[in-house]
């Protein structure tokens, strides 16, 4: 089972290694981790996708809460949320197939953000499935490089976490 945790932490030196170290030494599997500062510059938000049953999730949550720099941990799994991930994909492209690639990008509402004689860079946002789908379609052209941000998520509606 995958769970998405939103973790608010003090925006301070060393916090990322505390969180990452906790996952490593307790043997929890992280699928992805995204960090960035929030509307309050003293607070960072980590979005962590973790794999495990409910017992593991309960332990992860409690252990995270034990870290002094962790302000709040919320499991977004049970919530109605919007989730996005950003990927940058560099694909082999030349005059013969560039338009075909642009069509695929269009369908996914992705942007071409760099064009060179032998490649293009595509920027795509969406949930995991959408990114997986465009990756599959671009594969035959030859993906030279890909970078992904990991998932970030917010609860729908006016309420925060």
């Amino acid at each position: 089972m995958k769970h998405t945790l939103a973790v608010l932490v003090e925006n301070r030196y060393g916090v990322l290694s505390r969180v990452a170290g906790l996952f490593a030494r307790r043997g929890y599997n992280i699928d992805s981790l995204a960090v960035g500062v929030t509307e309050d510059p003293t607070i960072s938000r980590m979005t962590i996708v973790v794999r495990g049953d409910d017992l593991v999730l309960e332990q992860v949550t409690k252990q995270l809460n034990k870290l002094i720099d962790v302000i709040r941990v919320t499991d977004l799994g049970s919530e109605d949320t919007v989730e996005r991930e950003l990927a940058l994909i560099k694909v082999n492209a030349d005059v013969t197939n560039r338009s075909e690639i642009m069509q695929i990008a269009d369908i996914f509402r992705a942007n071409i953000i760099d064009v060179a004689s032998k490649s293009v860079v595509i920027e795509v946002t969406g949930d995991e499935n959408k990114i997986k789908a465009i990756e599959q379609l671009l594969k035959p052209f030859g993906i030279k490089e890909m970078a992904r941000t990991g998932k970030i998520a917010l609860r729908r509606g006016p309420k925060g976490i």
């Binding site: 030196y13 060393g14 290694s17 505390r18 170290g21 030494r25 002094i68």
Partner: peptide, 16 residues
């Protein structure tokens, strides 16, 4: 030492 003692302290500080 803050890295080394991360898993064996309740909390630690590197004074800045």
């Amino acid at each position: 030492i803050t890295g080394i003692t991360l898993p064996i302290t309740k909390h630690n500080y590197l004074l800045q």
